[in-house]
Write a protein that binds this DNA or RNA. Sequence first.
RNA 1: GCCUCUGUAGUUCAACGGAUAGAAUAGAAGUUUCCUAAACUUUAGAUCCGAGUUCGAUUCUCGGCGGAGGUACCA
Length: 605
Amino acid sequence: MKIESQIAAAVAAALKELYGVEINAGEVTLEKTKKEFEGHYTFVVFPYLRASKKKPEVTAQEVGEYVAAHTDAVASFNVIKGFLNMVVAPEKWVELLGDINADETFGLTKADENSPLVMIEYSSPNTNKPLHLGHVRNNLLGWAVAQIAEANGNRVVKTNIVNDRGIHICKSMLAWLKYGNGATPESTGMKGDHLIGHYYVAFDQHYRAEVAELVAKFKAEGMNEEEATEKAKKEAPLMQEAREMLVKWEQGDAEVRGLWSKMNEWVYAGFDETYKKMGVGFDKIYYESDTYLEGRELVLEGLEKGLFQRKEDGSVWADLTENGLDEKLLLRADGTSVYMTQDIGTAKLRYSDFPIDKMVYVVGNEQNYHFQVLSILLDKLGFKWGKDLVHFSYGMVELPNGKMKSREGTVVDADDLVEEMVRQAKATADESGKFDDMSEEERQEVARIVGMGALKYFLLKVDARKNMLFNPEESIDFNGNTGPFIQYTYARIRSILRKAEDQHYDHANLPKATFELSGKEQEIISSVANFAAVVKLAGKDYSPSVIANYCYELTKEYNQFYHEFSVLKEEDEAKRQFRLVLSANVAKVIRLGMRLLGIEMPERM
RNA sequence: GCCUCUGUAGUUCAACGGAUAGAAUAGAAGUUUCCUAAACUUUAGAUCCGAGUUCGAUUCUCGGCGGAGGUACCA
């Protein structure tokens, strides 16, 4: 970084001196030179030809000569067409490594009391079924985005809005009453969320049977398919009972509320277990049952101020046609809340709890429209962060035969998936025989770290915005561009460092550069140094995948180095010391980077 | 219908408007008396189609074609 800004300053000076271009160093873009060419940094001169009024080659040559003469960071340069490739002086690389080595949290920026307060909402589950792969993607992204925001000097509050009320909960409750025979997590040995999910499915099965029966009956009475289906769905006794239950809930019926609390507690216990396994957590949890009334109040205030309109039937609407959108329902005719009302209420509570500067919602891209509207509404209602709220919109996880649908049973359960990953990691480890000296407990811990690492890296390495494919047979891999690949490299470095300590080498002590650096070694220093810029970019773009890909590239480079050069067996003491420091800093940076993704590193594997 | 996102090797993913479009995996061929072979090396293979802007387009604009999502009383 230091080297880069030094060169950038020299290039800016050259452009000013030679061609009168008004530019400061921060505006000069330097690229890393492609591997096929000689050099470390490349400056592209095409944009400045207008100012130089000379051919690309000549311009690049002139800038190169100026830069080489004015900064000691550039040892030599070459020109290919409009590309000026600059070679950094070797001792500069060692100096740079020394700076990085001295900084235990290199690349990260600490927050203080004056730093912006960023609230990040993620997870936000329904309490009627267990978490599945889609939720896993959400949770890992949310956690990673929070870590990255923190690493960029923000104060972060991680929050979760639990959707604990509504017709879907009533369905599970009703089915449990009807078919459950008093089953509890204790009596069945099932996790609470799975138990509830089981009755949600049971409801659906019975409901469908009822609908099918009614449709047949209505058709026999002369209705067509469509009419019959619609009528049957409305009149199915189970659905009517569920609605009645929701009404009782809203009225505060003690029996319904009691059952609701009990069953929700089961679910929360199950969720907590899954969250813990995934390694995610929250600073503040909100419950929709607490927030939905707040939203109603705020909407009514807005109505008084003339921001919203009431229709003849009593429903309340926001007219967003001047924003290029439609009208949006905020309160039903019977005064009950809709989704949007609840998000407004949640926003109100949050803002009274925290002086939020920026709000980030980690929610799937199916809700893009919702958040577009929410942003406008919050802005109208006077939330200063409303206009610039960030909807971190991520894509769906698809299975080989399409989208996951809980109703159709085509879901990949979060707990099952985690268990399977760890099981496979364990099997691979046991097979290798590398851990024969470890206790079963230690081996299980390594398997946990590696299995979770594989899963997390798999979900975080791809661009969050895009839909991604999960193939149960093929996606789980421990070789190639994977979490375990990176973890393995880390473990190998740790092994070297442990041995170095045994031999009383000091891997913190960097010698003077009295030796030639190999190209690979220079590349690795350059890559390690680049971590700081990568963290900033990831923060700006809310992009965990940038971090993941960076860690992979660095790891790959180090593996090549590891194969080609020896660290401990190097006889030249200065070189050996240098390589120890280099290795230690690669390990440090990939540990810091992977930590931003919530991925742990094993000491051995 | 309208709105949003998306289209890159057989497959899964990369590429601030820059050089010969990178990886991984699957395929073929190799590397272990050497700090951990979950590694390394070699090899073959791709920008949906058509215009436009630009010195330069996978990237930006427009139009097709394909995929996903949303579309007002589900969250």
